[in-house]
């Protein structure tokens, strides 16, 4: 069959349409290609990666120094401030990275690259979303690991093997939830200016209204309530516990004004949040990608 040869201008005969290929093979081919594109962009423009590690690093060093002389006994179990801060900065790193998940999608919308994807016979357009999730998950985990290693070198400790697993699972759940939120915003907002504004406004207040920088016992009641409802806190406390060496999921990690939370409860809350957010943005994605 000469007309099927790649070295010809002839149209492929219609019966050559890839009928016998499985949906899974198609889906993974398109998802991998789209993910690869995002990583090529990262490799050639590594400033996002570098800034994503530098910023939390500066937090760690500056805030660590600022409160190095905090009176003993201020923090539970006589923990040093540097050790206390470590968990907060790790979570902040992953959170900031995931919050940016929507930006590449927004640029693709604005510059028409998305249209190029939409005229292609994608097996499922969820591969576009899936590629973003894969990319941003690996990126935020890489950045968090870089911070963890640096913190260890600064003498702020290391969680150990089982603790590390708990840290990664916790970060993963948080990243899923925040990525869903950011992707939803990327399709709901009119342009990248608006998206960047929302990211800018959301970023720091969420950090301050969490237990990243200070324990709840240190806060006025209203802020304590906010921090105890903040998803970042649900990620910070299990990680802090893992760093302290007590990684039992049944142990209480947070004494919230409304009751004690175990590590398992925190993880459950994060998982539920991620699930709810994905369900919430689904109709929006379906509409925008239909």
């Amino acid at each position: 069959m000469t007309s099927a040869s790649p070295l010809t201008l002839h149209a492929a005969p219609p019966d050559q349409a890839p009928a016998e290929r499985s949906a899974f093979a198609d889906l993974s081919q398109e998802t991998l290609a789209l993910t690869r594109r995002l990583f090529l962009q990262l490799a050639r423009r590594p400033s996002t990666l570098v800034a994503g590690v530098l910023q939390p690093l500066i937090w760690l060093v500056l805030f660590g120094a600022l409160f190095a002389k905090a009176p003993e006994g201020l923090l539970p179990d006589g923990m040093s401030y540097g050790r206390f801060l470590g968990a907060g900065v790790i979570v902040f790193t992953a959170f900031s990275a995931a919050l940016n998940a929507g930006l590449p999608v927004m640029f693709d919308r604005e510059f028409g690259f998305l249209n190029r994807l939409l005229v292609a016979p994608l097996r499922s357009r969820s591969s576009i979303v899936l590629a973003s999730v894969l990319y941003i998950t690996s990126l935020s985990l890489i950045q968090s690991l870089a911070i963890m290693v640096t913190a260890a070198l600064l003498g702020y400790g290391w969680p150990g093997a089982a603790g590390l697993l708990l840290v990664l699972v916790t970060l993963l759940l948080l990243v899923f939830a925040v990525t869903a939120l950011s992707l939803g915003l990327a399709f709901a907002l009119p342009g990248h200016i608006e998206l960047i504004a929302v990211i800018f406004v959301a970023n720091l207040p969420l950090l301050f209204a969490s237990t990243a920088l200070a324990p709840i016992s240190f806060m006025p009641t209203w802020l304590g309530w906010l921090a105890a409802l903040n998803p970042l806190t649900f990620a910070i406390e299990p990680i802090r516990a893992a760093y302290a060496g007590s990684f039992s999921l049944q142990a209480v990690v947070l004494e919230a004004p409304y009751g004690d939370l175990t590590g398992l409860t925190c993880l459950g809350l994060l998982a539920a949040l991620a699930l709810v957010l994905f369900l919430l943005i689904r109709p929006l994605l379906d509409r925008k990608l239909s």
């Binding site: 290929r21 081919q29 594109r37 690259f113």
Partner: peptide, 27 residues
């Protein structure tokens, strides 16, 4: 095959990488 008016191209990729991506999208 659709060749749009406003050429949406990924400036960071090379032409060959663009074609590879496109090929994967068409399986």
């Amino acid at each position: 095959g659709y060749v749009a008016q406003e050429v949406a191209i990924d400036k960071i990729l090379t032409g060959r990488e663009m074609l590879r991506l496109q090929g994967a999208l068409y399986h």
